[in-house]
Design a protein around this nucleic acid. Structure first.
Length: 350
DNA sequence: AACCCGTGGCA
DNA sequence: TTGCCAAGGGT
């Protein structure tokens, strides 16, 4: 066990990827640990999200809100707008809750134990272990998709996920060293991200190629096994884009919970098999030829788009008008942004 | 436990 | 086009 973690740490010393929220192995050895706030922010953003997608958002958030105290004082709408496009918007809502709880209950300092971190909103088993290990060098075991894949291959475990999760977690835990646990956590994930990849694993240059049971058995590329998923259905809906004579747009803030919760969007119908028209304001609506297509985690969406120019005095049944100068399309989640891109062409305002 | 929750890149 | 995949959490 000790030799396995030691050999991986040696590999990591040479191959650690550079990320803004990460402290290099050499600096960590000198006792330098990263800012827990920056680590927390990165780990929440990285939940089910690629490093490439996270970089720019992390930079922007640190610039706008340099500390957890600053973030806790932000307006909800500003956080949601800054998060727009990154997806899984419950993360942004929980981000704010968590920041405010850290300020209220922990004097603005992140707790430094797995158990205490786990009590915070948006911090589950993975993220609590990651922050404890990476920001505080505690010997906690991170188990993400990378670690599951690496363990399944290292021990040639054929039980399909998610049933295999406890066994994979147990193996990962047994390998976690007391020394440099933060580097080790990042090392296993880097190994999974760069060498022990889902497709075409680079077993030939893997630091664990000799002890790897799946490589010996020739099964590496087919692991981990996963239980098959249902295929995604298609739902349809109608989105209404109204523009007032002064250029203002009719938008609404979606309910706090559920799909795109708390985000800005166009008023519209429910999304289902056959939507019933539900215009948010009386107007002469025009149907666009093009429809907006978007795929969410568990369904495809096809949105028919209705546009209208409305009089200055019109009072909407739903939503509220937002002045042209105060509306930024970048504050929209992607599905709504696609609607905007198609509708805006026909609703220019001079 | 099973389901819900975004997005973009890739083969 | 389709399905898979990415440093998961909440309910």
């Amino acid at each position: 066990m000790r030799e396995l973690s030691a050999s991986l740490l040696e590999w990591y010393d040479q191959h650690a990827r550079i990320m803004p929220w990460r402290t290099a192995p050499a600096d960590r050895k000198a006792g330098v640990l990263p800012d827990p706030y920056a680590v927390w922010l990165s780990e929440v953003m990285l939940q089910q999200t690629t490093v490439a997608a996270v970089r720019e958002y992390h930079r922007k958030f640190l610039q706008l809100w340099p500390t957890v105290t600053a973030l806790a004082q932000a307006e909800d709408a500003d956080i949601m707008a800054a998060w727009a496009g990154l997806g899984y918007y419950a993360r942004a809502r929980n981000l704010l809750k968590c920041a405010r709880q850290v300020v209220a209950d922990h004097h603005g300092q992140f707790p430094d134990t797995y158990e205490a971190l786990l009590t915070l909103p948006g911090i589950g088993p993975y993220t609590a272990a990651a922050i404890a290990a990476i920001a505080f060098d505690r010997p906690e075991t991170v188990v993400d998709g990378n670690v599951e894949r690496v363990m399944a291959r290292l021990y040639d475990i054929h039980t399909p996920l998610p049933a295999a999760k406890p066994a994979l977690t147990a193996q990962a835990s047994a390998l976690t060293p007391d020394k440099r646990p933060g580097d080790y956590a990042q090392a296993v994930m880097d190994l999974g991200a760069t060498i022990c990849t889902p497709r075409n694993p680079a077993c030939g240059i893997c630091p664990w190629r000799d002890p790897c049971a799946a490589r010996r058995a020739g099964t590496a590329a087919e692991l981990p096994k996963k239980t098959p998923k249902k295929k995604t259905p298609t739902r349809r809906g109608i989105a209404y884009v109204a523009r007032r004579a002064d250029g203002a747009w009719l938008l609404e803030t979606r309910p706090e919970t559920g799909l795109l919760g708390g985000m800005l969007g166009w008023p519209g119908t429910d999304w289902g098999d056959a939507p019933t028209p539900a215009p948010p304001i009386a107007a002469d609506w025009t149907m666009l030829d093009a429809e907006a297509r978007h795929t969410f985690t568990h369904f495809h969406l096809r949105l028919q788009i209705m546009t209208a120019r409305v009089a200055q005095t019109c009072v909407p049944a739903r939503g509220q008008f937002i002045a042209a100068g105060e509306f930024s399309p970048s504050a929209l989640p992607t599905a709504m942004r696609k609607v905007y891109d198609l509708a805006a062409v026909t609703l220019r305002h001079d």
